[in-house]
């Protein structure tokens, strides 16, 4: 089979939480909270995290910037070594089982077309590194938030610029300039309306497992909507009335290995 003509100077920018994986940064924090040397501390941290969820949710609805400030304050006092070491465990136990089934395929298709793969995530960089390795994305192509550390202990603040909202678009522009990427010939994938700026700066925006607002926006702007979750769900939804359900499909591969 002939190799496809490769895109030159093109990149695919992926939001991660909700786009490539089913979980978000709160799950990661909850993981850290529950992994403490003392059982009592683990339990206390877990309860505290659970109680904070409504606050996080409200802050996220109001402003991603507020959310980041409130949320990352929870990391204050955590040691850098512990966070980095537990990141591998976080990936194995939490992130890996929650990667969307078709996420890796999408990245493979894009890479095969010669497109540079870039992760643009609001999560913390050390939690994203194992995922980037798994997806075959170079470390230089991982753009994520960085915690500020003083004497190897987190201050609870993020280094600027925050990777969120409109800043994502700014960061992508800077990245494109630095690596001679043509944004008009680039792709962006996200699940959330809050990442609208990220989609707006590329020539090929794609809504990926979108929330309702983004789905509606994608319809209005004629952007493709990609579902990286299991395909059989959609098949079931589209089954005409009166046809017996297909019970053997779930959990089995759609194509032979």
């Amino acid at each position: 089979m002939p190799t496809q003509p490769k895109y030159k100077n093109s990149a695919a920018f992926y939001d991660v939480d909700g786009t490539l994986i089913k979980i978000n940064i709160v799950h990661a924090f909850a993981f850290y909270a529950s992994r403490h040397a003392s059982l009592a501390t683990s339990a206390r941290n877990t309860i505290k995290t659970a109680l904070s969820i409504p606050v996080f949710w409200a802050a996220d609805k109001l402003s991603r910037k507020w959310f980041n400030e409130i949320f990352y304050r929870s990391y204050e006092g955590a040691s850098e070594d512990r966070l980095v070491v537990l990141a591998e465990e976080l990936f194995e136990d939490v992130i890996l089982p929650n990667i969307y089934p078709r996420a890796k395929d999408l990245i493979e298709e894009s890479r095969r077309a010669g497109v540079r793969q870039v992760l643009v995530s609001g999560a913390l960089d050390f939690t994203m590194r194992p995922l980037a390795r798994y997806l075959g994305v170079d470390e230089v192509d991982l753009i994520a938030n960085q915690l500020e550390f003083v004497d190897c202990y987190a201050t609870g603040k993020l280094k600027k610029p925050f990777v969120a909202g409109a800043t994502k678009a700014e960061i992508m522009r800077a990245y494109a300039k630095q690596h001679a990427i043509d944004l008009a010939e680039s792709w962006a994938y996200t699940d959330s309306f809050s990442d609208y700026p990220m989609l707006a700066v590329v020539g090929h925006p794609t809504a990926c497992n979108p929330d309702l607002r983004l789905r509606s926006l994608a319809r209005s702007y004629d952007w493709p909507v990609l579902d990286l979750d299991e395909a059989p769900d959609r098949s079931v939804a589209r089954r005409p009335q009166g046809l017996a359900p297909v019970r053997r499909i779930r959990g089995r591969p759609a194509q032979p290995e």
């Binding site: 695919a12 395929d105 298709e109 990609l226």
Partner: peptide, 18 residues
Amino acid sequence: QDELAYNPSYIEMYRRGN
């Protein structure tokens, strides 16, 4: 034509979507 044909999003949708 080639631009649409080699668009990785569309290839993904063809190969694993419907």
